[in-house]
Every structure is written in structure tokens, then in C-alpha cells.
Simulated scan of single mutants.
Amino acid sequence: MSTPSTPSASSEPGYDRSETGHERSEPGQDRSEPDLSVVVGERRQLINLSYRLLGSLAEAEDAVQETYARWYAMTPGQRAAVLSPGAWLTTVATRVCLDLLGSARARRERYVGEWIPEPLPDRTEWIGGTGGGGAQPADPADQVTLDESVNMAFLVVLEAMTPAERVAFILHDVFRYPFPEVAEIVGRTPAACRQLATSARRRVRAAQTPTAPRAGQAGLVRHFKEAWEARDIAALVGLLAPDASMTADGGGTVGAALRPVVGAERIAQYLVHFAEKAPGLTLLERTVNGRPGLVARYAGVTATVAAFGVDGERITHIWAVRNPEKLRPWTEDGPLPG
């Protein structure tokens, strides 16, 4: 991961102010360093924020690791002078993410095929975790709150925003930071941040379609699974909106359509062809980013994780992630079908 230049500690909110409101501690005044549990306890919030900003769990982990590296690079005295460790860590994590978002655009221009945000499982379905027996899974995905701000349709809309729009919108509309605090974090005026969030909100509204209730979507996904298993093209077409689209992300490492497949008939034929190339393909109903989805497993390994966009009684969008690098929470090492 690229390492942006480290901002000075004194540039972060909450730095070098005592609890009594003085800007600096008096000479000789002893302020203890923030409790380790308080600092470490911010990790969940930072992962939640970074994943929404970056759309990638791997990059979110890197951003949070970099944030903590900057924290521990300060002297004990500097850390003790931070009034609010949470505010300091949030500011640094956001700025790291903002830098990463800028470089991500260039990387994604070189990406082979379509780029889809990294899918997350429900905490009970995280393969790489230490769940079971009541143990708390250690993996960050388990700590990401799976609300509507991480459903795949929402994350795809975020990808169309400029980095500044995305940061202002996520901080204000999702995490409820007031604009003066957003401005301090991103280094812009409150008015500029308000304008950025307004622009982002327009993008979200323009892309919004009525969302089916979770139970209704689960039933539709189940019928879709059954039709796919039966290789019933007519049934698949009946479950898809006529102008439905399917976007696949193989990252150039496994076979995947390089451009979106548009139209119910074309999607159905593509899916049946995929199943025929991988005899023994197993389809499982799973939660993908908080909504009903499907996982396709081949030879015991996750080959595809599919998220769905649903409008009424039809499927309008399918986002199929096949890039193995994005399927860490879903699979163990093994072969993938081409």
C-alpha cells in the first residue's frame, strides 16, 4: 500500500488540549497516555468507515493498519496530548482513505474487466474467522455492520462519486458527522462539504429503485437458484427484468465477462453455459452484504459470490464477483473453474 505523508499530530482534532479546555498542558503537568483498550476499541468503527469509503475489505484493513502505525509513531507525550483518540484516528483513517481513493481510480483504469466492490458475508458465514463455540471471530469483516449502507447496489453508486463526494457523503449521511467536523477532517470548508454531500445525494437518488423486502428478495433468489440448477433458461428469463444487467468481476485471473451482460435472455444463456462448464457446481443461498445472495462453489471452493438488485418481483441487477483475491472470507485454497 502506498504510504501518504504522515500529517503532524498537531494537525489532527483533539491534539494537545487538556480536558479543562487549555490548548496545551502546563510545563510539568503529567497527562497519562490514552488507555490501550480505548484506542484499540476504535478499530471496529475505523473498519466500518474505511470499508464504506474504499469498497474493499483488504484496502480497509491496510488503511486502518496505517492509521494505527501513525498513532504509535508518535511519542508517548504526543499521544497523551490527544484529547480524543477516536477523533484523531478517524481523521487519519479518512485522510488515508482519501489518498487511496485518488490512486484507486488509476489502478482501476488498468483493471482487467469490470471492478465490483468486495463482497462480505454474514458474520455466521465467515469461513476464515474463529467463530463457533461462542468465540468472537477475529476477522474485520465480522466487525462491519451489514446495514443498507453496505448493500452492493449502494456501494456501486459510491464508486461513481468523486473521492471528495464519497468522503463527505459517508461521513455526514452515514456516520452522522456534522459538517463542521467533516470540514476539519477533510480540510475543506463546511459549505464545500455540504455541497459535496448534496451532489453525492443526487447521485444516490438518481440510481435508487424500489427495494424488495428482504423476505421477498430471499424467495426470488431461491427461485433463481432452482432455475439455474435446473438449467431452465425460460424460468431464469421469467425471473429477470427484460433489461436486467449482470456484471462479473474476474480481475483477469479467472474467466468472466469483460463487459456487463445486458438482457434477460443473454444473462440466462450465460449462466447456463457457466454451469455446463463446471459440472458439479453447487449453489448456496447466502447473505451478501446484508442482502440475500448466492454463492457458487466448485470442487469445494467458492468460485462466485453473487449479489442481486431487485425491483418488485424481478431481478434487475446481478453483481458476480469471481476474482479470488476478493473472496478470502468465502473460500479456502483450491481450483476454480475457468
Rank of each mutant, 00 (worst) to 15 (best):
G132E: 13
A164S: 09
P117Q: 02
L100G: 13
L100P: 00
G113I: 12
R166K: 03
R95W: 09
P140T: 07
P76T: 02
M161N: 12
Y177F: 14
E148H: 14
V150S: 04
P180H: 01
P137M: 10
V156T: 12
R79V: 07
T75I: 04
T130I: 09
Y111L: 00
L155N: 04
A80M: 05
A168V: 00
E109C: 07
A168M: 02
P85G: 00
Y72F: 15
A138Y: 15
Q143V: 08
A164G: 03
V174C: 05
W71M: 00
V112A: 11
P119E: 11
A104V: 03
A69G: 13
P140M: 11
L171R: 08
E109Q: 09
W115R: 02
L100E: 15
E165I: 12
F175H: 10
G128K: 04
E165P: 09
W71R: 01
G86E: 10
G86V: 02
T145C: 11
S84G: 00
D122C: 06
G132N: 05
T145S: 12
V156I: 12
R166F: 06
P178K: 03
E114D: 05
E159W: 02
G129N: 11
W71F: 11
E125I: 04
V157L: 07
Q143S: 10
A164F: 03
P119I: 09
A104L: 07
V156F: 06
A81H: 03
L155Y: 09
P180N: 01
A141P: 08
R166E: 01
E125P: 14
V174D: 09
A104D: 05
M161G: 05
R95V: 05
G134T: 12
R166W: 05
T145G: 09
A73H: 03
R110S: 06
G128C: 07
W71L: 02
L83D: 02
R70P: 12
R176K: 05
L89P: 06
I127T: 12
A73N: 01
E125K: 15
Q78N: 00
R110V: 05
